[in-house]
Design a protein around this nucleic acid. Structure first.
Lengths: 144, 144
DNA sequence: CTAACTATACTTAGTTG
DNA sequence: GCAACTAAGTATAGTTA
């Protein structure tokens, strides 16, 4: 029982296993972040794109992420730059991996958003809008 | 030798100890992210504000962070809200449950904020060096 | 599929140089 | 102060229900 040998540092081939592993590791990561933050008084955030449901898992919370990102970006009293790409551009260029298909479908729901495709564009003005925090939704099943 | 009892979930009072703990935990966190990413093909990023040198430690790299942030989304043209919410306000036990907001929610939650990500932010990033492998090179073990 | 379990691998607090 | 060490504590692969 339990693990037989060290796991090699490769992508877990089996999808179901990978999914389970993701859930466990993702949870573990959040805990680690939590502790780091508490023990050492650290401001931090993490954004994880769940490949199984194409959603973002964030730590500590959306407003918390936003707070760190603000500090990270040190921004803008700057003029808004308009070299944002539109959705179509994004969805076309953004396809790199199979799972992006799901992601793209999600994006398609968001009609009035602009995105910058960072992979191809080094010009990185990124703007983020924020909203009020609600009570966080309960964990949703990761199932596809 | 070694630890006497469980560490309480509090801020480490002693500054030197805290610093050491930060270094260790920060390193550990980066490794966890790395593994999560590799094992499960996950797109992710983390931004850690090092309280001891006021720099940002990022994973996987500044462009990598930028890439994820871009996907994370940012509705254009909104004024930045000057006062972000205090991290502590949101950092409670509900943290874990904050995960799994859907993409749309994430975008909406980021409605008030602007930030700029530019290349000159890249200087203060600390690269976490890979840890030594004690096993055979073929294995690329970094096992878990 | 999810949850619980548990042996093992990994992480890290405390120690030492 | 940092790096190496080591055992206590934690995370998780594989198993079971």
């Amino acid at each position: 029982m339990t693990r037989k040998n060290k796991v090699k540092l490769y992508l877990i081939q089996n999808m179901s296993e990978r999914k389970v592993s993701f859930r466990k590791r993702n949870t573990g990561l959040m805990k680690k972040l939590s502790k780091l933050s508490t023990f050492c008084d650290v401001d931090a955030c993490a954004i994880i794109l769940n490949p199984f449901n194409s959603r973002f898992d964030v730590w500590p919370s959306p407003p918390g992420v936003q707070s760190v990102l603000t500090k990270f970006g040190h921004p803008p009293e700057l003029e808004q730059t308009k070299h944002m790409h539109n959705l179509e551009t994004f969805t076309q260029e953004g396809i790199q991996k199979t799972r992006d298909l799901d992601f793209k479908n999600n994006l398609n729901l968001l009609n009035d958003m602009d995105f910058v495709l960072s992979q191809n564009i080094q010009q990185p003005y990124v703007r983020i809008k924020a909203l009020k925090d609600e009570n966080s939704p309960q964990d949703t099943p990761m199932a596809d």
